[in-house]
Amino acid sequence: MDYYDDNDNENLEVMLLLEAVNAKYGYDFRSYARASIKRRIRHRMSVSGIKKITEVIERLIYDKSFFTDLLGDFSISTTEMFRDPGFFQALRKTVFPVLQRLPFIKIWVAGCSTGEEVYSLAILLREEKLYEKSMIYATDYCNKSLTTAKEGIYNIKSIKKYAANYIQAGGIQSFSDYFKAEADSAAIDPSLRQNMVFSIHNLAADGVFGEMNIILCRNVLIYFNRELQNKVFGLFTQSLEEGGYLCLGSKETIRLSTYSDNYDEMLRDEKIYRRNSAPVSYSKPSAHPVATPEFVTKGGELIRDVKAKMEELDYLLNSVGSLPGQS
């Protein structure tokens, strides 16, 4: 048996599968790190009793519900509240004091998955009395994850684990105050959702996202190949205000990308970078700017941006309305 051939065939099959997913459903996983993708395909194969990747391709083309399951496999990412407590402590101690000066804080949690980090951030902002002037934009390409994020209902067992993280992160309240516990689940305090906007955004395909003060994207980029990582760093650089913060996962770095010079290392171990004033050279300007997919998404962004602005305005008007003596 020739093992070489076998493996080459499998790589070919994976490539064709990702092409099919992109062509048929518009989800582009072609620039994802392959080893994890392969694991997930194999998982779906063993669950569905499928022997060959070629059969997976056939199933996903003709059977939408099968594709939905596969997409679910691709999007699974385990996240937790206050993962890496040291990072959240650093955010509280080093970054937030700088934000106190700003009249309004815009935060983008890119690839927010099921929302655990979004709420961690909201809790932190509230405890530092910054929440009222913050707007958190939480995005993910996966609608199912985003729905969970919006609901903010988590398994009670996980909550217990998060409580320990919260304490290590320097939490100043009783963690249970932020939840309403049921039998085996706990729902997050809905007031934490007040200044949050959840929306679909695909880092692999969609464009820039407003002038942010903080972009949080932790343990998402490790799933991308180097090229896509670089592209996303470009996206972040365009979306971040000068002096804004980029927060990555503990094993991620911007240093290997072409945007390295545009950031100062604030806290090396916690992977908090600060956008400096160095001029940005975007790596690949499109040769045909008209009618490219990017161009189309740009339109979508503009609309989204306007929507965000309106929401901000709404929020400001609301807060004016609730000033003492105004109601």
Partner: peptide, 16 residues
Amino acid sequence: YHLLIEDDRTFSLSVD
């Protein structure tokens, strides 16, 4: 983190 090896002989990490 999980540690994986890619075809181009680089490592990748995951939090699966």
